[in-house]
Design a protein around this nucleic acid. Sequence first.
DNA 1: ATGTAC
Length: 427
Amino acid sequence: MGNSIQFLSEHTRLIASDENWIEGEAIQQLTHVATLKGMAQVVGLPDLHPGRGYPIGAACFSNNMIYPALVGNDIGCGMSLVRTDLLTRKVKLDKLENKLRTSAFSDQLFWSDHGLSLLQQALATDGLSTNPDHSDQTERDFIKSIGTIGGGNHFAEFQKISKVVDQSRFDALGLDSAQLYLLVHSGSRGLGESILRQHVDQFGHQGLAADSEEAQAYMRKHDFALRWAEVNRSIIAARMLSALNRKLVDLDNRSSDVVLDVNHNLVSQGSFAGDRGWIHRKGATPADQGVVMIPGSRGSISYLVQPKACEVSLYSLAHGAGRKWVRTECEARLKSRFTRKALERTKLGSRVICDDKALLYEEAPEAYKAVDVVVSDLVEANLVDVIAEFSPVLTFKTLSSKATGSKSEARTKSPGYARRPGGGKCC
DNA sequence: ATGTAC
């Protein structure tokens, strides 16, 4: 066991070395969570930072209570890494940026409709309700936003491989260091928000007995939001690639192109010290679902790691670098140093597409902690092995509404299939 | 992190 595991109490741990600065408010939130009724174990991960009342970068194990507020509004938020058939050495940044600015994220209705059919397939596989007309009103209301990235820390980022650390694992995953990859970070958008709000309106922040009807009703919506978020990331990847005229993501057989797709905001059944219970993860990546990506800010590398499932961390890992500055302070702190144009480039030579000025500042690399410290803390705690490092090429956040076109335009244009070259397997 | 209201 490494020395980056700090015991705050018998039931509360923080996985962070002395080099990793963690905000006091986040620790307070963490220790508060440990006092909730039925809470048995609480772990802060190396990217721990304060959230709205509850910590981000934390995993919490309860024996028989479910706390929707611990999962937060973005149920099913996660990371998906897909391979592309683009060669890194052939990428022309100007051309890549132009293509994405011109044609990414138009045709929303076409793509959300495609997402709906994917969602129905996924639900059928799970044995869940497959007909949206017979499901919850909330679920129907948000179908139209499927395939949208959203705001905050969400992104779709093209990445190149900058270093292979574990060649045999790298090869076993079928990875190719000459190829370009796409990392998608998004969640369940307004759907998850609505599910949490319904719960909070009815029950406040108190938890639900796991065996109650109310908990089961929440879990049904929660599970739906997980599938929705997974499909959302697939559609985001598909439309990014479609904008580049590539037949890349095999949507009907995700396994062939999807290297990983792992949610980090969720509650699921698990066990600790032989007891069954519920692991709540908020900005905490599961360590028992294969390889995962731990991204830094848009100006730093991301780490592909092999988790070592470990009870001391509640089978969980950091989900990223973690914020250093609150959003509201970023523009004031950075505007004298960086113009908007300057923020559209990074030290690693990558581009940023973000037409939202406030968001451009809020997500500046300076606003985030160093991801290498986060990852080295995980390595030191014997929780991961690093497989490879990925470097950003272009980070896509959001286009102005002018660039994406009006709703009527999206309705009349028929995209996708017609525009795609050579048929092929891409949807 | 979100959709909506201002």
